[in-house]
Each structure stands twice: as C-alpha cells, then as structure tokens.
C-alpha cells in the first residue's frame, strides 16, 4: 500500500467518525482533535478503524504520533513496513 492509499484510508476512517466534516479542508499539519472536535471515544474508534482497515495494532504509547493527518500517514507507513506488524496480506 502506498502513501496515497494510506492517506485515503485514514480520511475514510475519519469520515466515519466525523461525517459532517469537510475533510478536503483538513490542514495536514494541524491537530485532528482541534479541527474535527474529536473526543477520546472518537479517537479510540479512529484507532480501531485503522486497525480494521490496515491491520495495524497501534499501542497507546504511540497515540501522540497520530495527532495530525501528516503524522498518521508517516506513522502508518513505518508501522506497516515493520516486520511483525499484523498485516493480513
């Protein structure tokens, strides 16, 4: 999966959590929490959504790296390339 596909997947999962948001206006460098009014339950559902779509189990200590869209994409590229990551493919 390449960067564009990962970004699309992240936006898809976010869209399910904040269906009213216009994700095309998202600033990739700004915090998702501030832009989308995401609470801790939404964030947990976001992490679960990424897990379901990409088969990556993100430990809680890494949550800080998912604060922005750009951060999410970078983190997921690295996580999916790691040996032992729980990719289904």
């Amino acid at each position: 999966m390449n960067e564009v596909q990962i970004r699309e997947t992240v936006l898809h999962v976010l869209g399910a959590i904040a269906p009213e948001a216009d994700l095309s206006q998202l600033n990739p460098e700004a915090r998702l929490r501030d832009q989308l009014d995401i609470d801790s339950m939404d964030f947990l559902n976001f992490v679960i959504g990424l897990h379901d779509e990409l088969h990556v189990d993100i430990p809680e200590k890494d949550y800080g790296q998912l604060a922005t869209l750009a951060g999410c994409v970078q983190y997921l590229i690295a996580a999916m390339g790691r040996p032992g990551s729980r990719r289904a493919e």
Binding site: S40, H51, E60
Partner: peptide
C-alpha cells in the same frame, strides 16, 4: 488489543 482498551472515563 486495540479493541479491548479502556478509556479513563
């Protein structure tokens, strides 16, 4: 696992 995590709330 991510699906079994608890929130402090």
């Amino acid at each position: 696992p991510v699906t079994g995590r608890l929130l402090y709330g």
